[in-house]
Amino acid sequence: MTSRFLSWLSLSLLTVALAAIVLPMVYAIAYSPKVAPTHMFYSPVKQDFVFREHRGHHDFTYATASGETFDRRAFETSLPFIYYKNMDIWGLLPVEIGGQSFDLETIRDARQVFELKSREVEDRHPSVPVYALLNSDPDKAGLSFPEDVFRMMADRMEFVNVDVNRVDPELTERFTAALTAEGFAFPARLVAGKQTILKPSTKGSSLLMPVGRRSMSNGWTTVR
């Protein structure tokens, strides 16, 4: 009798748990309204994060992280570098931020917009802690991946040659010595840098130690 109860219990648990996963998915496929992703920006005007959330059926909420809500126009004027064309049409340019004035030409020529997806936040996505130390070669345009990759060990920056999958003691020693000489405290807390060659140039990788930061470039072993 106990075994039948145990069996019934496990089947019931499985049924309920699977239904709890599958049914909301089916419901979402069948009934969810069309929604756009929520976008969060840093507003240099409000000195706070502002976001736009789509609730379906063209119903948007514009708000700050602290809970203040406002209309679309106020949202756009809080982000003058993104909505600068509307700002211009509304006669709100030049805009003054932090004691500096920005007109249409300045914004158009100098603005840069970076997007950070939630999955790109450190520790929010899996990654293998082996990195390429990219280097801008002054003699040629574009970037290429080096044959040596590095990993941060407890007491050193260790290089592995990818062609033979073996540690390169000479490079390891050279880079570890350069870092140590500049006061880098092992182990590294974070290695940051865009691991791609689809960019015009690089300033190397940032290595975060328990306190502070050093940046390195391949080739010159430059520590900044």
Binding site: S3, R4, L6, S7, W8, L9, S10, L11, L13, L14, A17, L18, P126
Partner: peptide
């Protein structure tokens, strides 16, 4: 992708073992 849910997935799988008993009965 399963790094954070491996134990949960394993629990689902383990529950299948006693489930057979009723069928055997």
């Amino acid at each position: 992708a399963y790094d954070l849910v491996l134990i949960g997935a394993a629990a689902f799988v383990l529950l299948l073992a006693p489930a057979s008993l009723q069928a055997a009965h």
